[in-house]
Amino acid sequence: MKSLAELEAIRKATINRINLRTEDDSTTTRVVVGMATCGIAAGARPVMLAFMDEIAKRQLSNVTVSQTGCIGMCRLEPMVDVIVPGQDKVTYVHVKPEMVERIVDDHIIHGHPVHEFTIGANE
């Protein structure tokens, strides 16, 4: 038998797991990882898993992680776009798993892009 509080806790925990089926774009932050052959070869999969881990660890409910194909700058892979609603898209290049924590903390949670990792700082 579950108490009302326990039911509410189940609701909250489950909605985090299923809201990517129902969410509207206007409030969702999207993390898009380049996962074409070039991206995967450069190590995009550990980067993507690191993002998923970090997002789960911090229990962020309105962030989705998805992949995209090659955008032509294979030498800069692994590349990650972070799109916070209402803000410009930020492209990170040469992303390594150890950089993920800062991107999630500074950019996704606090809204300050990590400029030294962006394409602008590296080109």
Binding site: R17, M52, I55
Partner: peptide
Amino acid sequence: MDNYRAHVLV
């Protein structure tokens, strides 16, 4: 890990 990045609904 409970969070999945993609759901396949069949």
